[in-house]
Nucleic acid binder design. Structure first.
Lengths: 221, 221
DNA sequence: TAGATTGTTAATCGATTAACAATC
DNA sequence: TAGATTGTTAATCGATTAACAATC
């Protein structure tokens, strides 16, 4: 009995984030983007059925994904677009500013810094680093490229929550370690290499080479 | 009996590529990269056990992935690194040149054109397009930026097999349609938008915004 | 031969889809 | 009320992992 009650308390404590799978999480931004498009078009309500057709997805999956986070819809009616957008933003923590450190001021880094600013104001690149003396001190947008030796302290002092690695593979692990030392817990890596992070750090690697090579499989078939 | 023989013939025709799942295919470039690292370090043989530790993967999964494509290993010994690399390159069609058209000569496009050349010589960007009159005619590496109005005919005439979309979301569908008209069957899209392609075209979308937003979920937890 | 490791079948796990009662 | 659509449980599908006979 004691065991059971402890177990239930623990479940209650974790509440809604009771291990939502990554597959679900990665679909949320897709829903968000679509909902924003619909709102811009002046649409006010949508059913999972309609959304399924528009996004080429199974309507049951859409309903189930939403239901993990509460009851957003109205039976017989569908989902209110504005409310749905509000909830998706909240779930993804995009209802408040998220500070990001971007490491690497090459073409990819510059592309990313433009991109992120345009697309989603709440994810804000607060600091940009490189180790090239020629680049350090130059302006990119409204950011100044800083020496990588300040990476750790800047992340820590400014409470930066996310790191983006856009440097060559050879130095990616070093950059990654510095981010972790600076208390960054969520890292997006674009370098084509397998990075090692402590268990408490979330790392996602997505690199061009791997994507292209995987797609090459489908050629000539 | 006639039906059965037809069915078997069809299976035989599909042979080894009898629907290997995308999850498997996407791991192949990871194996390839690792095997190349090992070879560069002068290592000649590896077991699925060792590889599992190094890549933080289940050894049974590694063996099963390889086994879809034949018997590469030696029982009691492991896999010959050089032979494994050879086979992975062959499976991914990286043993011959693959012609790529890159659309978008912004920072992302330039980053991609550097990247792809360095990493894997066989995936070759053969043509680069943009619709900005200022960029058209300029050199990027050893490529000249061409007007997008030549996209379709160039892809068709030069037998380009893969397309990369690195343009803003607003024009991505138009670019995509032109690639398809030019007989390109495999497309990697970096624009944050849901593109429509005919069934016979393989499309993979990977965009920064979606990745960042999905990762934002894991912040503050 | 003894020890190691593959290739493959069976068991498990997890994610997607179908079905339907609840209800707007 | 009748028709529509959600939220959720059950069924299905697919992918991962364990286990082990075959064999180097």
């Amino acid at each position: 009995m004691v065991n059971m009650s402890q177990h239930m308390e623990r479940d209650y404590g974790l509440e809604k984030d009771d291990k939502i799978s990554n597959s679900v999480i990665r679909r949320l931004p897709v829903y968000l983007r679509h909902v924003q498009t619909l709102r811009a078009a002046g649409i006010q309500t949508i059913s999972s059925q309609q959304m399924g057709v528009q996004l080429d997805m199974n309507p049951a999956q859409i309903r189930k994904d939403f239901a993990y986070f509460g009851e957003f819809g109205r039976k017989g009616v569908g989902y209110d677009i504005e409310y749905l957008e509000h909830m998706l933003l909240q779930i993804l923590h995009l209802d408040r500013q998220i500070g990001v450190a971007l490491v690497g001021a090459g073409h990819l880094g510059i592309a990313l810094s433009n991109y992120a600013r345009f697309q989603s104001e709440r994810i804000t690149i607060m600091a940009l680093f490189d180790n090239d003396p020629v680049k350090i001190g130059t302006h990119i947008g409204d950011l100044i490229v800083q020496d990588m030796k300040f990476l750790r302290e800047q992340c820590h002092d400014r409470n930066i929550e996310m790191g983006i690695i856009a440097v060559p593979a050879a130095v990616a692990q070093d950059v990654c370690d510095r981010l972790v030392e600076g208390q960054v817990r969520v890292i997006l890596n674009f370098a084509p290499t397998n990075l090692r992070v402590p268990k408490h750090v979330i790392l996602r690697t997505t690199d061009f080479t791997t994507e292209l090579q995987a797609l090459a499989y489908y050629i000539a078939r």
